[in-house]
Design a protein around this nucleic acid. Sequence first.
DNA 1: CTGTTAGCGCCTTCAA
DNA 2: TTGAAGGCGCTAACAG
Lengths: 354, 354
Amino acid sequence: MSASTDDTARAGVDGGEFRRPTMRDVAARAGVSLKTVSRVVNAEPGVSPALADRVRRAVTELDFRPNVGASSLRRADGKTATVGLLVADVANPFSSALQRAVEDVAMPRGVVVFSASLDEDPERERELARAFAARRADGLILVPASDDQSYLEAEVRAGTAVVCVDRACRGVDVDSVVATNRSGAAEGVRHLFAGGHRRVAFLGDRQSIWTASERYQGYLDAFAAAGLEIDPSIVVHDLTDTGVADGATSTLLTRPNPPTALFTAQNLVTIGALRALRRLGAERTVALVGFDDFPLADVVSPGVTVVAQDPWAIGKLAASVLFSRLAGDTSPTQLHVVPTTLVRRGSGEIPPPH
Amino acid sequence: MSASTDDTARAGVDGGEFRRPTMRDVAARAGVSLKTVSRVVNAEPGVSPALADRVRRAVTELDFRPNVGASSLRRADGKTATVGLLVADVANPFSSALQRAVEDVAMPRGVVVFSASLDEDPERERELARAFAARRADGLILVPASDDQSYLEAEVRAGTAVVCVDRACRGVDVDSVVATNRSGAAEGVRHLFAGGHRRVAFLGDRQSIWTASERYQGYLDAFAAAGLEIDPSIVVHDLTDTGVADGATSTLLTRPNPPTALFTAQNLVTIGALRALRRLGAERTVALVGFDDFPLADVVSPGVTVVAQDPWAIGKLAASVLFSRLAGDTSPTQLHVVPTTLVRRGSGEIPPPH
DNA sequence: CTGTTAGCGCCTTCAA
DNA sequence: TTGAAGGCGCTAACAG
């Protein structure tokens, strides 16, 4: 039952598994040398049509799949036609739009994408970058979870292209693509001021996250420019998911002298605030401006006014930069800045009471 | 400038790139044999602590990264600690929740995930499955876009584990994990009947998609069980994105004798219908039940009643099955069925006029 | 406990 | 235009 007297395509493993056909098998079947098969498979010129045809037939008959790992081992450029993508959470709409954009640039080039979620954990960032490097990804697109990417220097020197997205890389000289977090946040808060609000609460994620602290700076900028004092009791950080954002919003709105408007600095925070507003029946009395757009922001009522980033455009740009580096572009690295836009949908235009 | 007289770590490529250190480099630096390095790197027993330490130091000093491709080439099991995930669209909430679940099962095992979007294109399915196979993914989790996966047979025979999700695989004997599409859809429609509706429209995706046709069957089942006639003029198929779903809903509701309730058979269709309902100011007069839950379904007003699938649970199950197959489970393949649940949120409880 | 030899599947270099 | 030899980085099988 487990005896393997057949030496062509059976593995010795039990369960009746077959050995994958190799170029040698294809060559034998087509009656040519291994190198000729290699030429045909890689579309190298200089093979007579007759031979090429015989090879192609053998390839389909045997269901031959070239082994990219083996070929990159010997190949001059060592490329694997693989890139890695590290985001905060693939289930977050910002991340998944980014991922889709990267895919859309990679696929037409025959490049496949590794992806992984970091959950803002610096250790996971390093582990997964290492895991992708061990699989010899040609490039890495990374939404940094840590504040120092110098651990990537060896990879970069070895020829791995790296692009940081959403937050700039630090400790290593590579390209980054970021949005106008600070000025965009300031614009959102100014919009609330323009509507007559003075008590504008800030709800944001952990300040150790670069974008979170930038957006908080924008909030501060807007207050400073308007000559207004900040009330630290309506500033809340460390909101890491919708649940805690919901709770924090409740607390804020049910205390004495509540804010008349909310600025939520991240999409999950916005959604949490939205839930709280609805539960309290306050969605038409308390103004809300969120940073980062999300699906259905236009369908809830009132629609949610946001400072929108374009994750798809950001991803496209990041991937384009990555591939041009892989193609040999050695110009100085750049920090690419993508503008945000204020999208008025109703929630941000609610006037203060009085 | 491009001369390379240095033979240690410089590549001949211009641009000053460095060759990656190999086990040989580590061995030389630690003053041991290559095999000893291999043992330490792979945590094989039988290396004296002193040597192991020297090796580990050399590894960090050189920033050595083992080459998984090369190792799998020689390794007995040929495994790459890599799985591929093929979904309809990573940017769709159902797909991205699924992806996250797969990741959560894979990561603790040191397995990384390739992912790709198929956009319901059968050709892309085959191309990407082939691309993942060429990189020797140990397993494949697949939301089929085509109705025949027999092209995977060679992979399966070669030992690649395959699990189909959302729709059962056909043409190849592998595990599948699906939801109760037909009975769930019937339950959703029955719920509208129970609320007094008789004119219930069906809005769905292309019937060539297995889940779409199953859900349509459920719609038919509910009508048959209730002894009601179907009005084909309020049945619309081929709704492939939110835009066309929005348009179709508008058309349906602005014609004479419009339906009093909508059954939308996919999350993007539900969202499109929602947009149309709001634009027409009909969200509180026309009932709506959607198949498949989506973020913020509870935040819009009224909340959207849905037949919910649990993509995270489905993904967890699919990944568990995959890894148990990879671990050697050879029991007969199964069709795992995950139940759907009706979630009442308001839109499905709107009564008919009169 | 440590090292040597051979070869995984493929591409490079070079010769016919 | 075709093919033979050698080696990429690593591990299996066997020595010592």
